[in-house]
Design a protein around this nucleic acid. Structure first.
Lengths: 129, 129
DNA sequence: CTTGACCTTGACACCAACGTCAACGTTTAG
DNA sequence: CTAAACGTTGACGTTGGTGTCAAGGTCAAG
């Protein structure tokens, strides 16, 4: 299939697909006219990339997962490198959360100081909706 | 005082001070030579801006606080607009935390699935070190 | 007079993942 | 044949708060 179809199937813009290729996450055979030709496997690759991006991974983070899939593994997470990225990402997220909790406390404190009547509810993990 | 001294006193680069002015958060009289002239009050303004930026506010968010100080109030948070920004920021931070917690759960789940032996400790607020 | 420290405005670089437009070649439907 | 729909590469814009350089004006000390 060509880039338009891959874009439609994955819900990713053609621009993004070319961007991924430019950064070595995707590769495409070229038809005689210069058009990119993709296989069904590429749909998997793109899906993997998207699902990683949506949970906050960068393209660099996604690279080991793509390589893992290309190496023939059933999932992008089946390789040691991918697992390492998972661990690192987890640590990064935890750090971000800590920073945000600190900021929240800071802002809440300032708000309370400026406006004693303003009730600021606690932000326990109970963040249901 | 001129920009160099204000920069030294506040620990903010001259570049940033000009940037703040460019965005209407700071104003300066000009000497006969075109040099900016600042007063002691400006030190307060810049300090207010910095403390807000360090807790994740944007310059736009800081504007009401600066206006409040310029209006003669003792603190930048003494005005209704500032309090409103505090409330909004708090909500934004809470939202970010929610998103991060969701991502964390997602990543932790994937990691566990890919590597059943990998123990992933819970991220309760107990984020001590 | 000269050096050098300070000031001025203006403009480009940065990070990330694209959107968007330009200018052009290809394929396809009518 | 022709127009529309698709493909190609290349390049600039976005977002925010700076760093950094350029090219120059000002001013005090020697």
């Amino acid at each position: 299939m060509r880039i338009g179809e891959l874009a439609e199937r994955t819900g990713v813009s053609a621009r993004s697909l070319r961007y991924y290729e430019q950064h070595g996450l995707l590769s495409a055979r070229r038809g005689p006219n210069g058009y990119r030709e993709y296989s069904l496997e590429d749909v998997k690759l793109v899906s993997e990339i998207r699902s990683l991006l949506t949970v906050g991974f960068t393209l660099e983070d996604a690279r080991p997962f793509v390589d893992c899939l290309r190496a023939g593994h059933a999932t992008g997470a089946a390789c040691a490198e991918s697992v390492a990225v998972y661990r690192r990402k987890l640590a990064e997220i935890d750090e971000e959360i800590r920073v945000l909790l600190g900021r929240r406390a800071e802002v809440a404190g300032q708000l309370t100081a400026a406006c004693p009547g303003c009730f600021v509810k606690e932000n326990r993990d109970q963040a249901d909706d």
